[in-house]
């Protein structure tokens, strides 16, 4: 009898704890998704404020992607709506989170995944933390106790903020790369992908399939982060998962990166000038897929034209 009582007490304790966490999660959840709302990675999460089912192409990855792809350039040259859900040091568990969040409100036909994140190490701890935070957002937003007001507690969540550059982060500085194209010396060696990373990519692929999106692997030019061994690793993975793979580090004729002028930090990330070249190639690539329709003349997408005009004003050289 005593054991049954103790088990009952234990279950009650766990249920009470779960209730407490659910309640506190409701309190701590940001009630909007703008700059000072407390929303994590608010630029990437600006996709939550985009009109339902309005995004054609989703870009995922770490800082490599948000420095390389300019969605408003794609809009202006091809008429496709795209959004960069890139975050600094993104690990694949968070890539999954961003993808799931996007699919809740959007139906992109193409998902482009920058491959640097595929090699970024993460642990079981990251996965568990991300999963637990998905259910109990108090773990993710607990720090909001510093800035929250009493009025926010009861307010319903309304995500209306959209990022004016659609997730792209404008970098205009120039710091020439130390290496030139020699960083891609051919080799047969393959840099293995960690098991936990591979499983995550497989889940991402499955999620894309289930939502009718085509997954494309994409390596943006980076002398610091990319090499032939990594290329071989991703190529093998792409073959296995039956995905297309674009490695711009090898397409030096199609995307002639000038490593003296096109990088913001010695070859690590593209600056605006490099990003323009990368985006130009991607824009053409997307056109060739034949999966997307030009929406520039669609009145429902008038805001995109306005956003592009505003974006052009802030750029050193207009697109």
């Amino acid at each position: 009898m005593i054991y049954i009582k103790r088990i009952f007490v234990f279950i009650m304790f766990i249920l009470g704890l779960a209730g407490l966490l659910v309640g506190s999660s409701y309190i701590f959840l940001p009630k909007s998704n703008g700059l000072n709302s407390g929303m994590e990675e608010f630029k990437a999460n600006g996709i939550l404020g985009e009109k339902e089912n309005s995004i054609d192409v989703l870009f995922l990855g770490d800082s490599e992607i948000y420095c390389s792809v300019i969605p408003l350039q794609i809009w202006q040259s091809s008429g496709y709506t795209s959004y960069v859900c890139g975050t600094s040091g993104q690990t694949l568990d968070y890539t999954e989170v961003m993808l799931k969040r996007t699919f809740e409100k959007q139906s992109p036909k193409i998902v482009v995944m920058e491959t640097n994140a595929i090699y970024r190490k993460f642990t079981v701890k990251n996965v568990i933390f991300t999963k637990v935070s998905d259910y109990f957002s108090v773990f993710r937003y607990h720090n909001r106790w510093k800035t929250m007001s009493i009025d926010e507690i009861n307010k319903p969540a309304e995500y209306t903020f959209t990022d004016e550059s659609k997730g792209y982060r404008l970098k205009t500085g120039i710091k020439p790369a130390v290496k030139d194209n020699s960083y891609m010396s051919p080799t047969d060696k393959i840099l293995p992908i960690e098991k936990i990373n591979r499983q995550s990519v497989e889940r991402i692929k499955k999620l894309c399939d289930e939502n009718g999106a085509k997954l494309i692997f994409f390596s943006t030019p980076s002398t610091k982060n990319w090499n032939y061994m990594r290329h071989n690793g991703i190529e093998a993975l792409a073959k296995e998962l039956k995905c297309e793979y674009i490695d711009l580090n090898l397409l030096t004729k199609e995307v002639p990166v000038d490593w003296k002028n096109d990088t913001v930090d010695k070859g690590d990330h593209m600056n605006y000038f490099g990003a323009k070249k990368v985006t130009s190639y991607l824009s053409e690539y997307l056109e060739n897929t034949g999966l997307l329709a030009d929406k520039r003349n669609d009145s429902d997408y008038k805001t995109w034209n306005e956003a592009a005009e505003e974006f052009n004003k802030n750029c050193p050289n207009k697109i």
Partner: peptide, 8 residues
């Protein structure tokens, strides 16, 4: 949970 220094 609330005041612990963890996360981003």
């Amino acid at each position: 949970v609330v005041f612990g220094a963890y996360g981003a």
